[in-house]
Design a protein around this nucleic acid. Sequence first.
DNA 1: GGTCTAAATTGACGTCTATCGAAACAGGTG
DNA 2: CACCTGTTTCGATAGACGTCAATTTAGACC
Lengths: 124, 124
Amino acid sequence: MCQNRRMSNTKALPLIQADVEPCCPPLNERPLTVEEAERAAAMFKALGDPIRLRLFSQIAAHADGEACVCDISDVGVSQPTVSHHLKKLREAGLLTSERRGTWVYYRVAPSVMASLARSFSVSG
Amino acid sequence: MCQNRRMSNTKALPLIQADVEPCCPPLNERPLTVEEAERAAAMFKALGDPIRLRLFSQIAAHADGEACVCDISDVGVSQPTVSHHLKKLREAGLLTSERRGTWVYYRVAPSVMASLARSFSVSG
DNA sequence: GGTCTAAATTGACGTCTATCGAAACAGGTG
DNA sequence: CACCTGTTTCGATAGACGTCAATTTAGACC
């Protein structure tokens, strides 16, 4: 089940990286600009689906901060649908994926948690 | 434009309150349950529209933590659409509204900022 | 009461979205 | 090579979503 990911080749492979900027100021600091709102809303929109949010949570909560698709695909929808949701999360800049051998591992993109936490930090 | 809200009658009126529970644990603490994911996803979904996010930000960033609808309705969509979006944010438990005289004032529901910030706090 | 303004509601319209099955494709293993 | 894991594509469908014009509701004021 690849829960134990001891594999023969663990070399670094081509990452599918999304550019993750700090995104946005705290929501209560000042009104977001149109551009800021569009970027931040895209992230929230990606998290706005229960299935996607569970996938994200499973990855974020997984040991070593990364999870194989085969470990998280028991969310009640078909496998292509899982892949579809993971792609949405990737496109939103929330996840990165990396193929190592047979399996593909997902992890939360760098600084995403901090960036989103900052959105809700009280600045007043 | 009611920017100065000094009015004759400022008595307390029937609130349209949404029950705002702490909602959910940090996303990286453990995988969310189905119920937790549905509740949290509803909030993120409400914030997942650029217009709604700007409305929310304008209210959250407004002086005294509250804003009259007439102060925030210049987001480029019609008045009914603004009202529609504010209703969505209310139903998601993110905003509360209160009518005082002619105008309706919105504010961020209690503990919403802290609750959402907690979702992205690093617990590992 | 009549009129004005503020905001919510209604109804309709077009578009986007989530989901699926099936099939094809790409990388890696044995 | 066959086999496995995961992604992608292709319809296809049912439902949700954003938007608006028109209307209604609610309150203030004369």
